[in-house]
């Protein structure tokens, strides 16, 4: 399995990263190196092995349905790169 430049471009789009041609080239080589190294996992038979998503086997961790005060809007908006009238403002979508 080897990653092409087009695939790297597609992955960059999924990740919302703008890459220069040089970066695409570099990441194509490096990702192929790393994924090539990862190929050794395929040698292991894991047909009957369950995946580990959590190392500590906790289950049913829940809280009661209680309302806590929300945060003051000035604090919520304090870090906003752009705001207007209590909203976070973003550039046009289309």
């Amino acid at each position: 399995m080897s990653l092409t430049k087009d695939e790297v471009q597609h992955v960059a789009m999924l990740a919302r990263l703008e890459l220069s041609d040089k970066e695409v080239e570099k990441y194509t080589t490096q990702l192929n190196d790393i994924l090539g190294y990862a190929q050794r996992l395929q040698a292991l038979d894991t047909a009957n092995v369950p995946p580990t998503a959590h190392v500590f086997p906790l289950q049913n961790v829940m809280r009661d349905d209680c309302v806590d005060p929300s945060m003051a809007r000035e604090k919520i908006l304090a870090n906003a790169p752009d705001e207007e009238d209590g909203f976070f403002r973003v550039p046009k979508i289309v």
Binding site: A38, Q42, L44, T46, V49, P50, P51, T52
Partner: peptide, 9 residues
């Protein structure tokens, strides 16, 4: 998924 399985091992 493969990595998570080997994690189990």
């Amino acid at each position: 998924l493969k990595a998570q399985k080997v994690r189990t091992l």
